[in-house]
Nucleic acid binder design. Structure first.
Lengths: 225, 225
DNA sequence: CAATAATGATAGTAATGCTATTGTTGATAA
DNA sequence: TTATCAACAATAGCATTACTATCATTATTG
């Protein structure tokens, strides 16, 4: 029996909810594969349609443009990580332990059991690492922020900040540390793989242990009293 | 008398060296202004040419495409920050003091005296903050890395890592801390301005003091023995 | 002053980023 | 069972983008 998770996202992200139809799911599935394959700059709806054997016009019925599709994927990932954190920390009392699990989730979300058949979480993780920040480094950021398009990131970040505060209530930068942990997790996997002189950690195959170890070390040095 | 700095960049970044001609300088100048104005996604060579009253073909004689132009600007910025660090730390003995100056430079490079008349450093800084990472979050990163297109970032990062090692030779992640300081400086200015719930610092007008204070705090907590 | 390099002017082409229209299919409801 | 309707496919079309090519003109330099 498959467990069915329904990730809830801001309705403004899409024209028609892709989770509701089989064509919608197909769009998500192939978008993830294709962006990973050719990169976000080369990705477009015509190529996507060709790949999934549908038409450009049909894709446009689900997403306004490729930026919104990326934002949808990124939001989906934020929400998914948030969900993973919830289920993994549910019964854990010790906030330090919870924070460790959070770090592990940031780094290794992609190693989880696949939750949804049309989303390849491992490949999506690669997209987040490479293309993720492009979703909010845009000219229209304030407008989209007003429409609540980045709420999933904020919620995730605030969830983590709350745990940081539990670990050390006097630490003055819990939100910054929370968002930085997420960004750093992605960045240093990327650096290790592509620009290794910008980091100290090594990543072989899909072994991100050193990244996790580094984040743990930094975090608990900052939070120790 | 104007002080004349010549920033040296990888020749592969451009087709013709823009620092050598007045048209080249004009391209740099107006590219900075226009990217800041309309964002990198909307920016293109036709618009740039129109703005500077030249032609598209002429711009293409200097840069292969807009990605290379962005990479040129980002490299220029890395190199300029590197230069600022050199002159500001030149006579400082104490490595902790040098590191503080580095942090200040990361955050406030844009407040420096303009060094080159055709580069508005303050506006360039805004571009780095918003668009900077797009220069290396690309599909072709490995190929471009092989050609040495990111050397300026690496050198900057290694320069900072060396000082970090001086402050605390046992700290296990000097390179990661170095690159993270640079990324964090930019990120948290951006967050404070656009997505304030992702950070704890406030930025009013062009006052980045809180970002600087935060980076100092984090850095020296990590490095204290 | 001759030669040559840089730029401007113009045109053109393939790809991109859409929108519109019309036809087909498959599900639902009367 | 058929009428209705929504979703999707098929096709076309158009403005913009991302270049490349050619040729004329203007600066530079030897």
């Amino acid at each position: 029996m498959a467990i069915s998770i329904k990730i809830s996202l801001n309705q403004g992200l899409y024209q028609r909810d892709p989770q509701e139809t089989s064509l919608g799911k197909k769009i998500i599935k192939h978008a993830i594969l294709l962006i990973d394959e050719i990169g976000f700059e080369s990705f477009n709806f015509k190529r996507l349609a060709a790949r999934m054997e549908s038409t450009e016009a049909s894709v446009y019925r689900y997403f306004e443009n490729k930026h919104m599709l990326l934002l949808y994927l990124v939001s989906w990932y934020w929400e998914w990580v948030s969900y993973l954190i919830d289920i993994h920390t549910m019964n854990i009392e010790d906030p330090s332990k919870r924070l460790k699990i959070i770090i592990q989730t940031f780094v290794k979300a992609s190693k989880e059991n696949p939750a949804i058949e049309y989303v390849n979480e491992s490949i999506l993780h690669r997209i987040i690492i490479t293309e993720g920040t492009k979703a909010y480094h845009i000219k229209q950021v304030d407008k989209e922020n007003q429409e609540g398009f980045f709420l999933n990131y904020k919620h995730l970040s605030e969830k983590v900040a709350a745990v940081i505060k539990e670990v050390n209530p006097t630490f003055p930068y819990p939100r910054a540390l929370a968002s930085n942990l997420f960004e750093m997790a992605n960045n240093h996997i990327y650096f290790a793989q592509h620009l290794p002189r910008l980091t100290d950690v090594k990543v072989e195959q899909d072994n991100f242990d050193e990244v996790e170890k580094m984040l743990e070390y930094l975090t608990f040095r900052l939070l120790e009293k």
